[in-house]
Nucleic acid binder design. Structure first.
Length: 283
DNA sequence: AGCAGGACCTGAAAGC
DNA sequence: TGCTTTCAGGTCCTGC
């Protein structure tokens, strides 16, 4: 499910509740997530205090006392739930709850229907963890450098859509925001990646437009609290609103929203995943 | 080396 | 109505 804006929204929803709380007990379901929990996970985090929550690309990082760090990835269907007050006692563990952290005055629950997500424990610098160390720069804060991208794009034959989904090149984007960014920058998703670079290795204008569109769409999506489709909701159960702003994603056969353009949005498959685009606006 | 496709899961919706 | 197929926000792994 969650791309950068959704994970950022989850982070914001959690930090007000869990920061400075001490983990008094931990409970796991018997089902495995994508990766098994690291050894003695439950024992090691007991009585540790959550000092801070951060996000790197689509990963959530919980910094604990004594230098432990929990790395969480939500996969396609992972969600965190907060339970507090009088709801604690009447909380019934539901089918896809996989980990429950107990605090003195609340619960933090990781629920994941498809179990593509995972929760790992590491120590000290999570950036050095192999899952995070190979991530490319992310939109917004971490400068997305056009010149550096041009260098990477040079000579790449695969489609631009697939390149943008590659977390090693740019991290944090997923299927929705790649489609939306390509629409905003008027670029065809099927273009060869190298077509955004001139022969001398310099970036073409389209590459500048693309980077601007990526930053813009991610910034707006964060502002609207991410996109709520199917199972995504905030930690407090509220919904994001950005799905109402989609220009192409999920709009197959509907009219292009660009004024004056009457073309129908097309859906194609690239590497087995749906790509939505306007055949008239995007070139 | 770079890339596409399969695999990993569950459940909702569409198709027949 | 009920069975089958397709689809979903991700990414690791395999093999070409």
């Amino acid at each position: 499910m969650p791309e950068l804006p959704e994970v950022e929204t989850v982070k914001k929803g959690l930090e007000g509740f869990v920061v400075n709380k001490t983990i008094k007990s931990v409970e796991f379901s018997d089902k495995k997530l994508r990766f098994p929990y690291s050894r003695k996970f439950g024992k090691k985090i007991l009585n540790k205090t959550i000092l801070n929550i951060d996000r790197r690309a689509k990963y959530l990082l919980f910094y604990l006392s004594e230098n432990y760090v929990i790395i969480a990835h939500l996969g396609m269907s992972g969600t965190f739930k907060i339970v507090k007050g009088r709801d604690i006692k009447k909380y019934k563990i539901s089918k896809h709850d996989h980990m429950i952290l107990y605090f003195d005055d609340g619960l933090l629950i990781y629920n994941d229907i498809r179990r593509f997500g995972y929760i790992l424990l590491t120590a000290n610098c999570p950036d050095k963890h192999h899952l995070l160390s190979s991530l490319g720069p992310e939109p917004l804060g971490n400068e997305l450098n056009v010149e550096a991208l041009a260098e990477i794009f040079k000579g790449r034959k695969r489609s631009l859509k697939n390149t943008l989904l590659d977390q090693k090149i740019i991290s944090g984007l997923g299927n929705i925001y790649v489609c939306e960014a390509l629409f905003r920058s008027k670029i065809l998703p099927t273009k060869f990646t190298s077509e955004l670079v001139k022969k001398n290795g310099m970036a073409k204008k389209k590459l500048y437009d693309l980077v601007e569109s990526i930053n813009e769409v991610i910034r707006e999506a964060i502002f609207f609290g991410g996109s709520s489709l199917k199972d995504f909701h905030h930690a407090d159960g509220k919904l994001g609103y950005f799905q109402n702003k989609f220009k192409v994603y999920g709009r197959e056969n509907e009219s292009c929203l660009q004024p004056e353009c009457k073309a129908k949005i097309k859906r194609i498959k690239q590497s087995n995943r749906s790509t939505f685009y306007c055949p008239k606006c995007q070139k």
